[in-house]
Design a protein around this nucleic acid. Structure first.
Length: 1042
RNA sequence: GGGGCCGUAGCUUAGCAUGGUUGGAGCACCCGGCUGAUAACCGGGAGGUCGCCGGUUCAAAUCCGGUCGGCCCCA
């Protein structure tokens, strides 16, 4: 470090005079960072050094950024700045934008005032997608503004963009790779589907739309073939009954054939009471016994050409509700579909893509509307057992409120289930923070990973790059070039890898030469962002080296909701394509709640805009607050909480800087480094270095809150112990060795603190840096401080701790005795052993001042304490077990002196147990009394002599007078070092006190004269005047600048 | 319906893995003190059935089982 200190360096615009000035100063610093290109310089500084690979999770910029986004940015920035200051080249350190997906389409539909696929087609896909492209960046400026304001350093100019051809090309390459492994296949799959929007919905869209609803609850009778009995079956979706093909029972579930109101029914035993109440059991059997039984079709309209209508077993059958016999309609339930696939029963689907029947008497009717008609039909046919309604949660389209259908669709999907073991193995190499996610939420998810439904029947997204010819040959280009090489005819000038361009071109089959048609799907938008590790580099088409150097990623962090979003898709794609984990460290972030612990949401109106907080309190304050508790836990947040926190951290430190500045200006201190020769200074520097060590350790393990608390604690110690204790050392007129030592310690501490805090509070750190380093460019170009073990003195820290505790005890004694601190006392005696005696000796002056006593004595004290017992349960418990309580009770009833003697003499026998000195500790307890106070947790007792003699009383009065003169000085707004003339009018004790402590008063108040006036000398009563009453006596004081 | 996390003072939290004397802090509150860092500071006080119930144990905030509540994810 250079020893140059220039207190005038900080520009006026960055000066802070009150809490309110912080946001403005931050804006100034932002401006200066831009002008001086500090971020670029930081990157330049570390270019070519060891890399720390970071991947930005791309936000979708067609929504406004909120508090949760601010949190991710704050956390990312902290980690990256920390690593950067440690000499890592953060790589690639670029932003990213997620561009595709249904939300964008919906935004555009709204703008156009349309809301169906038909209308989009009519409007024109080309123009529609052009509008989508525009809409994607609707809020990009807001995002960049918020990110910059919070101090997040990342390269926005080179951001990766998922909708650009280069990015899509890389995604295509991955898809081709997956296809070639035989893992990308097309099949029917049952997906949640909005019949009105005409598309399947992604799982997280579905999750948004669950709500309570009423549905019919019907019990129907399936006639058993060649037997006078029925299978009793329950469903809430009567419209699926015409498509019934099988019934399912649980293999190990107990069933019964019962007689009820003259008919015979099969039903799960456990459901009899609930469904039928009383019923006569004729025969019992297991589910497996029912397997293979045939039944007569319930609603016989849709042609069925294969074998069906029999009972089989399935593990999803339960007896939680219904009858334990489940109706299976493979077109409308995932379980149903998979079961029929297993049984080799092809599905029937008498429902079109608009959710209307295409067959049956209800043809043309929306399925949900058909429910009552079907129930009526069943009733007429005598096939209805009972009908009612049920309340349950059911998914609705979050956008148009149409009930979703589970619906079998032609779908491309990735056979993730085949990669299950690889996923689990790769997950093992990841460091999850918090750790429980690894085998908890995330691990469990991988354990029963589902195949990935990849295709989407929409418009704005990465097109599925699969072309087929009539003979069934498949062409799947891994790049634009490969595609265009196989195109027949003209390629439009404005060709891009989106619909409709990819649909409009004609590809010639590489095998048979026939024209090929593209499979008309997009892919799940999550596949886009999950491809970011390689697609951001346009790998493998370009930048192979860049990618290889940046994979796997060292660090990612996003909200906990990404566990099954981005964290998963990254892992999935990386496992498919590279068969290794894509990241090494994942830090997840909890939800930000409002002041009352409720989830923030726009509709509730309780959302806090991060920009408001930063403009009102400051980005640093907000950052530090966010860092202060475990980032992975959900936390409450409000501007007030931020303000409160900043007042005891940033603002407190700011006051220390002010204190330093004022004194340095008065003394002409210029950052000289002198010898440290004072215990307090040594202690401060020891604590400083210990703090550096702690902060580094915690940041290395991503325990951000622990690092933050280490800083918080240090600021408290610096302000409320070091400066408070050292204040007077800075006031003395000349530069003494002690003062030099103090300056050196405080100065070193502040400048080191600016470095230490730079990743946390980048703006405030910059200010302190300017204040303490003078005309250097930026704190962010410095290296992160390394603890100097030579400066750490654990014993000293421990001892100081003891001294602080003893001082507290002394003050407590005063309080109990009701003697105010300004009143000097003669003596404090401290009862302790040699170890503590040495500590007291060491900090004698500190203690005297803190407790305001003339003298302190150490050593054993007699006559002021009594013997007492302390029972060691830890040693007695295991030995005495059940007798413990009795023994303790007995012991408490004994005379203490006697117990002490017996213990000392080799043993105390109670109820057949021998207790030794380890079991019962005898110690001296202070007598009930105002002067004696135990130091908590230490074998130290202080005894305060609270007698006030005449001399002490006068000194106390002198200090009262000094305080009042100081108050007046302050009210006159005098400079620190301004000299004054002081006159007074008083009699009695006050006059005596002034005469006795005249020099002392003059020195403390910087008075060049201190004279008594007589009432008649009116002309001398000039200057600032005040009358006071001290301990019942009156005094008048006049002050004028000399 | 399934899985996960969390529940300690009004708020933010430590302690919990490895059970042990009286569950620690900070903010806010009340009382007192201090007064040239002052939207501070120092001392004290009040505030806790450690979500609830049960179990294990001489001993449970801590271990086990259940339950309630919050949140997240999945259906």
């Amino acid at each position: 470090m250079e020893n140059v200190y220039n207190p005038l360096y900080l520009p006026a615009t960055m000066q802070i005079r009150s809490v309110a000035d912080f946001p403005r100063a931050e804006e100034e610093i932002l401006k200066e960072w831009e002008e001086k290109k500090i971020f670029e310089k930081v990157r330049e500084k570390n270019r070519g050094k060891r890399r720390f690979i970071f991947l930005e999770g791309p936000p979708t910029a067609n929504g406004m950024p909120h508090m949760g986004h601010a949190l991710t940015r704050a956390v990312k920035d902290l980690v990256l700045r920390y690593k950067s200051m440690n000499g890592y080249e953060i790589y690639p350190w670029i932003a990213g934008w997620d561009c595709h997906g249904l939300p964008v389409e919906i935004e555009v539909e709204k703008k156009l005032g349309i809301n169906s696929k038909r209308e989009i087609e009519k409007f024109g896909v080309k123009e529609f997608n052009r509008l989508c492209r525009e809409s994607v960046f609707k809020y990009r400026d807001e995002w960049i503004k918020m990110s910059k304001r919070i101090g997040f350093w990342i390269d926005f100019n080179r951001a990766y963009v998922t909708m650009e051809d280069y990015y899509i090309e890389s995604v295509w390459w991955a898809l081709k790779n997956i296809y070639e492994q035989g893992l990308l296949v097309k099949d029917y799959k049952v997906v949640p589907y909005c019949p009105r929007c005409g598309t399947p919905l992604s799982s997280h869209e579905v999750a948004q739309g669950y709500r309570e609803t009423k549905d019919p609850s019907v019990y129907v009778k399936f006639k058993v073939k060649d037997e006078d009995a029925y299978f009793l079956v329950w469903t809430t979706t009567p419209w699926t009954l015409p498509s019934n093909l099988l019934l399912a029972v649980g293999e190990d579930i107990d069933y019964a054939l019962v007689e009820y109101e003259g008919e015979r029914y099969y039903i799960a035993k456990a459901r009899i009471k609930e469904v039928l109440g009383e019923a006569k059991i004729i025969r019992e059997m297991k589910g497996s016994d029912l397997k293979g039984k045939r039944y007569e079709r319930l609603i016989p309209y849709v042609p069925v050409e294969h074998d069906a209508f029999y009972v089989t077993t399935a593990d999803f059958v339960s007896t939680e509700d219904g009858t334990g016999i489940v109706h299976i309609a493979p077109a409308f339930g995932e379980d149903d579909y998979l079961l029929c696939k297993r049984e080799g029963v092809p599905l029937i689907k008498p429902v079109n893509e608009e959710g209307k029947f295409t067959d049956t008497p209800w043809k043309g009717m929306f399925v949900k509307d058909a429910d009552p008609h079907i129930i009526q039909w069943l009733k007429e046919q005598g096939k209805l057992f009972r009908k009612g309604t049920v309340k349950h949660t059911y998914p609705f389209c979050w956008r148009c409120d149409t009930p979703l259908l589970y619906y079998a669709l032609d779908t491309w999907y990735i056979l993730m289930s085949k990669k299950r073991d690889d996923l689990l193995r790769n997950n093992e190499s990841v460091n999850w923070k918090p750790e429980h996610l690894k085998h908890g939420r995330f691990g469990n998810f991988l354990e029963d990973v589902k195949d990935w439904a990849l295709s989407r029947n929409r418009y704005w997204g990465t097109p599925l790059p699969i072309w087929k010819c009539p003979s069934g040959h498949v062409f799947i280009p891994g790049s634009k070039k490969e595609l265009l090489a196989n195109v027949e005819g003209e390629i439009p000038e404005d060709f891009e890898l989106h619909r409709p361009w990819v649909d409009d071109i004609t590809v010639k089959c590489p095998v048979c030469g026939a024209p090929m048609k593209r499979e008309p799907y997009l892919i799940d938008v999550w596949f886009d962002s999950g491809s970011a590790p390689f697609a951001q580099f346009h790998y493998p088409h370009e930048n192979e080296g860049d990618f290889k150097n940046a994979f796997p990623v060292d660090f990612i962090t996003e909200g906990i909701d990404q566990t099954r979003g981005w964290f998963y898709t990254l892992m999935a794609i990386s496992t498919l394509v590279f068969n290794r984990a894509p990241y090494k460290n994942v830090l997840t972030l909890g939800l930000i709640l409002d002041e009352d612990g409720e989830k923030m949401s726009k509709s509730k109106g309780n959302a806090v805009d991060p920009m408001d907080v930063m403009n009102n309190v400051g980005a640093d304050a907000m950052r530090l607050y966010l860092y202060a508790s475990p980032v992975w836990k959900s936390r409450r947040f409000s501007e007030n909480l931020v303000r409160e926190y900043m007042q005891r951290t940033i603002y407190t430190l700011w006051n220390v800087v002010q204190f330093f500045k004022k004194n340095a200006e008065l003394d002409g201190y210029r950052g000289e480094i002198w010898e440290i020769r004072n215990e307090l200074d040594m202690w401060l520097l020891s604590r400083l270095n210990t703090t550096i060590k702690d902060v580094r350790r915690y940041l290395d393990s991503y325990d951000i809150h622990l690092a933050t608390r280490a800083i918080e604690r240090f600021i408290d110690e610096l302000s409320n112990w070091y400066v408070r204790r050292s204040r007077r050392r800075f006031w003395r007129e000349e530069m003494s060795d002690d003062k030099r030592s103090a300056y050196t310690a405080l100065f070193t501490t502040l400048r080191t603190l600016s470095l230490l805090m730079a990743p946390f509070t980048p703006f405030f750190a910059e200010i302190i840096y300017r204040e303490t380093f003078g005309p250097k460019e930026s704190v962010h170009l410095e290296d992160y401080p390394v603890a100097d073990d030579g400066m750490i003195d654990e014993r000293l820290e421990e001892e100081m701790n003891v001294a602080i505790r003893i001082a507290e005890a002394g003050r407590r004694a005063r309080q109990i005795a009701n003697v105010k601190l300004r009143q000097p006392l003669r003596m404090m005696q401290i009862s302790c052993d040699d170890k503590y005696a040495r500590i007291v000796e060491k900090f004698l002056d500190v203690l005297k001042e803190e407790v305001n006593v003339k003298d302190i004595r150490v050593g054993p004290i007699s006559g002021m304490s009594q013997l007492s017992l302390r029972i060691n349960y830890r040693s007695l418990g295991p030995r005495l077990k059940g007798d413990l309580k009795k023994v303790v009770e007995y012991l408490k009833g004994m005379d203490v002196e006697e117990v002490a003697r017996k213990i000392r003499d080799g043993g105390l026998e109670i109820l057949g147990h021998t207790l030794g000195p380890e079991d019962v500790e005898v110690y001296e307890k202070p007598l009930e009394g105002v002067q004696a106070v135990e130091v908590e947790g230490l074998p130290v007792v202080v005894y305060l002599d609270t007698n006030v003699d005449e001399e002490l009383r006068l000194e106390g009065l002198a200090r009262e007078i000094i305080r009042r003169i100081q108050t007046m000085r302050k009210e006159m707004d005098l400079d620190y070092d301004a000299k004054i003339r002081t006159r007074y009018e008083a009699g009695g004790s006050l006059k005596k006190a002034i005469e006795r402590f005249r020099d002392y008063i003059m020195e403390e108040t910087q008075s060049v004269s201190l004279d008594r006036l007589h009432v008649e000398e009116e002309e001398d009563k000039e200057g600032y005047h005040k009358d006071w009453v001290i301990e019942g006596e009156k005094i008048s004081i006049w002050i004028s600048p000399s």
